[in-house]
Simulated scan of single mutants.
Amino acid sequence: MKWAMMVVVLAMMIVGSACSNKKPTPPPAAPPPPPAPAPTATITANPNTVNAGQPTTLTWQTTNATDVTIDVLGSVDPNGSKQVTPVESTTYHLVAKGSGGTQDATARVTVSGGGASQPDEISLSDQQAFAKYVKDIYYDYDAYTVRAADQAVLQANANFFKQHPNIHFTIEGHCDERGSTEYNLALGDNRASAAKNAIVQAGIPASSVRTISYGKEKPFCTESNEQCWQQNRRAHFVISK
């Protein structure tokens, strides 16, 4: 009987040792967090057609955005409205950024009338002087802020136009080949408007300046490299006929 009890105790010890050496099953891995929701953005202008000198109201709404900007206005609240008085037809470009990405939207305001005078006859010497002294400015990729290095160029252009008040001119907005046609048309419009705003602030009458956007449709250089793209990201000055 004593030997039987010892056998039972020894068997229990072996079973207990085997159980204690068994590794526990790890818990299942936690699922990855869901991706951040992408921002949404809308902007409207009411009315979207005005006569020169009349205001319009921009109204915008965004979701899932922490940084919202509108050209000309700069940083704005995620949702809001503001009255503006554009001096010419303008595309207002809104960019909403958040942890889930970037979304943009545009609103076009068409300005009619204004009574701008027709340019006087421009002499050949004025045209030659324009070609010699009026310079284009260039922009960084996907941007329309006038760079510090180009501020002096615009000031020199303004000084020339002050000395030649009979010259009316157009500022063309151009982009490189990347991005959609619609996006680059809006970006080119913003670039031309930024150059015009700087010229007007330097003392040139707004009625002397027209703007137009060609987006990526009229490149100055057709190679697909950064050196060429930089040449195409510009505000180009031409005499208005």
Rank of each mutant, 00 (worst) to 15 (best):
F169Y: 15
K162Q: 15
A30Y: 02
T56D: 12
E223W: 00
S20N: 08
A107N: 04
A198M: 11
M6W: 12
H164C: 03
S125R: 07
N184L: 14
V134P: 00
V109G: 02
K218V: 14
D126M: 09
Y138V: 05
Q128R: 13
A148C: 02
Y138H: 14
K22Q: 14
T85N: 05
T40M: 00
T181H: 10
S224F: 07
L185R: 11
T59I: 08
K23C: 02
T40H: 03
A198W: 10
E223N: 00
E226M: 09
H93D: 09
C228M: 03
R108G: 02
N159P: 03
F160K: 04
P205A: 11
V84R: 06
Q155D: 14
T222N: 03
R234S: 01
A206V: 11
S89N: 06
W60N: 02
V209K: 04
A105M: 01
G115D: 13
A158P: 06
N51S: 14
Y133C: 01
I204G: 01
A107Q: 03
V146M: 11
P26F: 11
E226L: 09
P119T: 05
I14E: 03
L187K: 03
P165S: 09
D150F: 10
P165C: 07
G113E: 09
Q83L: 03
L187R: 12
V68H: 05
P37T: 09
P26D: 05
G100N: 04
F130Q: 07
P55I: 06
R234L: 06
Q230A: 14
M13N: 05
S99D: 15
K82S: 12
V15I: 15
A36M: 09
N232S: 00
D140I: 00
G98A: 01
G101H: 01
A129S: 15
T63N: 04
R210P: 03
P86M: 06
W229I: 02
F169N: 08
V200F: 08
S207I: 01
E121F: 10
R234N: 13
Q54H: 07
L124V: 12
A195T: 13
D126I: 04
R108W: 04
